[in-house]
């Protein structure tokens, strides 16, 4: 395959590698020397106060944000300004947003088939079948012909997950997927995410759902002021946080 030449050698099981990544918004230093290695099948939960750079970090992984120094290597492809490489990375990385970002002028089914048809050149029939498979997996096949505006928030977010899965990603990025939802809808989205995790998907989740972190994460990371302050296995992370900053943060979100 000609694309192999674009790939660089990384440790065999690493699917995402961030090495000394720095990013600035104008003068503001958002990401400071971030180092992170994600292995295939790993589920990582990233938490931290707002403005700590957690969303920015995962948005750098599929180049929605540009980093200014350091290396990001996704599935063997180093991210540069080269559009082909960005394309290659985006094919492997799915993303779910806080505000769903479904396309309101298309039906649920069209939302799911659009990218396979236009970016992957999948034939319409096949794309429909694929979309229905994933819509069944997120348990809303019956809504396929409705418009996103007719669905509840939880349903919309599940459609967004199905839409990403239709591109057969190797990695899924979740950017606060439950933060914009009414409380009674959080569970239906988390259930889908837990199921996805149990099937071996590599996942990076920015979330404050500590229950989710405890039950499925391999690693929990705490970020503050653009740095990864601490990372650990969930049990250790929650019972014996190492830094004072983490303790304070955990006490604030777990108190009530």
């Amino acid at each position: 395959m000609q694309l192999e030449s674009d790939k660089v050698n990384t440790s065999s099981s690493a699917i995402i590698e961030l090495k000394n990544v720095n990013k600035w918004y104008g003068e503001f230093h958002v990401l400071k020397d971030i180092n992170l290695t994600v292995t295939k099948g790993e589920i990582i939960v990233i938490c931290g106060p707002s403005g700590s750079g957690k969303s920015t970090m995962i948005r750098c992984i599929n180049r929605l944000e540009e980093h200014q120094s350091g290396n990001i290597i996704v599935n063997g492809v180093p991210l540069t300004n080269d559009l082909k490489k960005i394309d290659l990375v985006r094919k492997d990385v799915g993303m779910v947003f806080q505000h769903f970002n479904l396309f309101p002028h298309l039906t649920v089914l069209q939302n799911c088939t659009l990218a396979p048809i236009w970016a992957r050149k999948t034939p319409q029939k096949e794309a429909d079948k694929l979309a229905m498979k994933y819509l069944e997996r997120v348990k809303i096949p019956e809504q396929a012909n409705k418009y996103p505006g007719q669905l509840s928030g939880g349903q919309q977010q599940r459609v967004a997950i199905a839409r990403s899965l239709c591109m057969n990603p190797q990695v899924m990025l979740f950017d606060e997927p439950t933060s914009a939802l009414d409380p009674e809808m959080v569970k239906e989205v988390l259930d889908v995410m837990i199921e996805l995790a149990s099937e071996g998907m590599t996942m990076l989740c920015v979330t404050h759902e500590m229950g989710f972190a405890k039950s499925v994460a391999n690693r929990v990371m705490f970020m503050d002021a653009g740095e990864i302050i601490e990372e650990n296995a969930p049990h250790e992370f929650f019972t014996h946080p190492k830094s004072e900053r983490t303790k304070l943060f955990l006490s604030q979100i777990l108190q009530h």
Binding site: D87, V93, A119
Partner: peptide, 15 residues
């Protein structure tokens, strides 16, 4: 058109 629409399209690999 909200920024999220552009981002969702990019994230799905549409040029």
């Amino acid at each position: 058109i909200p920024r999220g629409q552009y981002e969702a399209a990019s994230a799905l690999g549409l040029n």
